[in-house]
Design a protein around this nucleic acid. Structure first.
Lengths: 143, 143
DNA sequence: CTAAACCCTCCCCTCGACTGGAGAGTCAAG
DNA sequence: CTTGACTCTCCAGTCGAGGGGAGGGTTTAG
């Protein structure tokens, strides 16, 4: 058994982080010494490594917590994890596509903007690089 | 001159949002009526449209505030905006590439995970879909 | 005159994953 | 016995872009 500091050192993380995982249920409540110190076994190290790997591929602590809970219930979380991984990959595809569209729009604005003269910019619309002349219209987002 | 509610309606945004922009300096401090009501002219509408357009391509309110400040100083912000736009496009390229790498990794994990049997998963490492067997090692991020 | 509809300021809350610090108890070495 | 390293809990704050609501003034239509 090791104290939280030793575990943090071996896992390459911080004491604060481990306490936080304890608090939010990513790690099971630690065993405690007589004086109240958290005590961890080797298993905690494997769990922290899992958290790291899972975070690295974009899983949230909430999702990771669910996985850990399954494991704690004696159930192999593999199927659940596989679904998470596939869903996250799909979400990333969408996200990447959306960012790509924004980037394309930025490139268009930049290309057009390089041809514009600042002297032609109408102060009423702040900057014609972002708001092309003649784009004014009533918006309707809250009504 | 219109009150904040009328402006919000015309701009398709909320009163809260306009007050917030006022507070953080995205909009210049509004003129006030005798009773303290904010009063806006048509210019504010153009400014709100600019904010919307700029946000839509990923500029932050902090950046937008700088642009507005230039405009308020009587300077055409076009060159600054063009730089922001180009820089943001470059950042998005990096971001998209990074997300693509994560997605690729997820696809790899999923493909491999589909071939794994949950019964072979070592509970000590939570789930072998994310942490392939034999990946254990000491990490060193904080020390 | 009164009620509805506006408007004001001020403060707290949201989300995620922590980080920092105060104040206090514990443990190991010299 | 003391000192310093370690640990505990609890509170607060971070970042961005607002949202919710209390408590109180203002304006306008009937």
């Amino acid at each position: 058994m090791m104290t939280i500091g030793a575990l943090a050192e071996r896992a390459g993380t911080s004491i604060k982080t481990i306490r936080y995982y304890d608090e939010v249920g990513v790690l099971a409540p630690a065993q405690r010494s007589d004086s109240g110190y958290r005590l961890y076994d080797e298993g905690a190290l494997g769990q922290l490594r899992f958290v790291r790997a899972a975070q690295a591929v974009g899983l949230s602590l909430g999702e990771i917590r669910q996985v850990m809970a399954l494991r704690r219930q004696g159930e192999a979380p593999c199927r659940f994890v596989l679904e998470l991984v596939e869903r996250r990959a799909d979400e990333l595809d969408e996200r990447i596509a959306a960012l790509g569209r924004v980037r394309d729009e930025l490139r268009r604005l930049a290309a057009r903007g390089r041809l514009l003269d600042a002297r032609d910019c109408d102060p009423d619309f702040v900057c014609h690089v972002v708001v092309p002349a003649g784009t004014a219209r009533e918006e309707r987002r809250h009504g």
